[in-house]
Amino acid sequence: MRILNVVLFLVFISYSFIVVVTDKHPFYIPKHFPKPYYQFKDVPQGRLRFELGRTLFYDPALSRDSSISCATCHLQYTGFTHIDHPVSHGIDGRIGTRNSPVMINLAWNKFFHWDGGVIHLNAQAINPLTHPKEMDMDIVELLKRLNNSSFYRKRFYAAFGDSVITTPLLMRGIANFSVALVSANSKYDKVILKEEGVAFTDQEQRGYDLFQKYCNACHTEPLYTSHEFKKNGLELDPELKDLGRMGITERKADSLLFKIPTLRNVEFSFPYMHDGRIQKLKEVIEHYSSLPTGNKNVSKELKKIKKPFTEEQKKDLLAFLKTLTDKEFLYNKDFSFPRGER
């Protein structure tokens, strides 16, 4: 009996060892996805780096008064966005001007933010960290705070072989988490990959057909975005005065152009549009269905919708959009708050 215990103990020990050694960075390229845009050679990935990024992502110490973390506006179970509020609120309840975007399949993104102002995932986090209406943190102060923490010095040493925390290391740490947020296990994916026993219902299939005809030019599968900037028929909000892409490129032609968001997990990422002015998904469908012809704030792709969708078609589209929900992603324990670290 004692021998059996010893054997079991040894098996247990070696098993845990194997788990640690083989535990890789969770990023992967789904079979039906194109090549990612992200330059992995710049940032070698590793499980410890991913875990460090995850800790940073959920740590309120990254905001000026240690009150909010990245996750405050990017909640996992909503596709890493901030729900309920049209525009997100940051530190001291300060209200921003935009709806926080989802963080899904970022390795395939060329541009970040609704206006595409940021072009590197590795540098993106500087914006919310330092923005006075978001985390309002001074980078110099943040580096001091992290370098004064033996917890973080050890974590950075373990992940990057350096206990001196610098801006590039901090950014790489966070990017190692955000790049890992791959969502490709929705019902749609399973249908496309011909997984056994998974098929669209008739209604979903009708919705998919409609989607391919009218929506896919911008929300291009399998990522459900073409990564371009388009006018989607929304009038300028006179209070927010957000001109979108034009604020970055300084070109008049780019006025009111906003980045096309992915529709993956769109069922849970309400409210919708860059300023969150539409609350419900069926209202978004309604918006596109009833765009007045001749509206100058409409891209050419949307002009293909010549007459409003019927009530049946709207229901079909809605049913299809819900097949983009990926519960394995929304509840993936790898991406959730890291418990019991400290």
């Binding site: 940021v118 540098a123 500087i126 914006n127 330092t130 980078i139 610098t166 801006t167 590039p168």
Partner: peptide
């Protein structure tokens, strides 16, 4: 973001 391009030097535009 290395060396003289480090955002801590106050010359980096985070929004653009």
């Amino acid at each position: 973001l290395e060396g003289d391009l480090d955002p801590v030097l106050g010359m980096y535009w985070a929004w653009n």
